[in-house]
């Protein structure tokens, strides 16, 4: 016999251990403190350099499945073939999905902020980045607006450094 039944959840009387896992969960204290060097690799290096030098969003086209992967990748994740045909994609697109961040995290901007997946015109895959300019006074209202999968545009910052924060998305309709 490899397993023996024990009392079900919530049956504290039958369960010898009387600690309620909901009222008193086991808590793990964590601390991360480490440094490392991030090397972006050939494709991501060029992708970020394009942001810095040319303020354009680049993808790579897979000849096998005819998709444009954004951000640019050196391999197609569907066909496993090496790809090196670079294409500039549009600066407008559709917000496919989003989340509203309400809790702060070291290194990220003060909440609330919006992060979204955007498929830019001409791209086959969605790109993750900050969505600026959303009125977040009422989360339900903001969520309802973002759920309509609105059109967004890429806005570059004044000083591009070759990082993903060189640009953000904002609603196309915002100044319509």
């Amino acid at each position: 016999m490899s397993s023996t039944p024990v009392p079900p959840d919530g049956d504290a009387a039958a369960d010898g251990s009387t600690t309620d896992p909901v009222a008193e969960p086991v808590t793990i204290q964590g601390h991360w403190d480490f440094g490392y060097t991030y090397f972006a690799g050939a494709s991501a290096s060029r992708f970020f350099n394009e942001l810095r030098l040319n303020q354009r969003i680049m993808g790579t086209h897979c000849p096998t499945c005819d998709r444009v992967l954004v951000p640019a990748r050196g391999f197609c994740d569907a066909c496993y073939v090496e790809i090196d045909e670079w294409r500039e994609v549009g600066t407008e697109g559709t917000l496919d999905s989003f989340t509203i961040l309400t809790t702060s995290f070291p290194g990220l901007p003060e909440p609330p902020t919006v992060v979204g997946y955007v498929t830019l015109d001409g791209a086959s895959t969605a790109l993750l980045n900050a969505v600026h300019g959303i009125d977040l006074h009422d989360f339900d209202e903001a969520g309802a607006l973002l759920l309509t999968q609105p059109r967004v545009r890429v806005v570059f910052s004044d000083k591009c450094e070759g990082r993903i924060t060189d640009f953000a998305f904002e609603l196309v309709a915002a100044d319509a």
Binding site: P25, T27, W32, G35, Y36, Y38, S45, F48, L53
Partner: peptide
């Protein structure tokens, strides 16, 4: 177009609690 390798020095310093 630059294909120069992009390298960032990163430091993570995070305190957290998991329930």
């Amino acid at each position: 177009t630059s294909t120069a390798a992009l390298i960032h020095d990163v430091r993570w310093e995070i305190d957290y609690r998991v329930r």
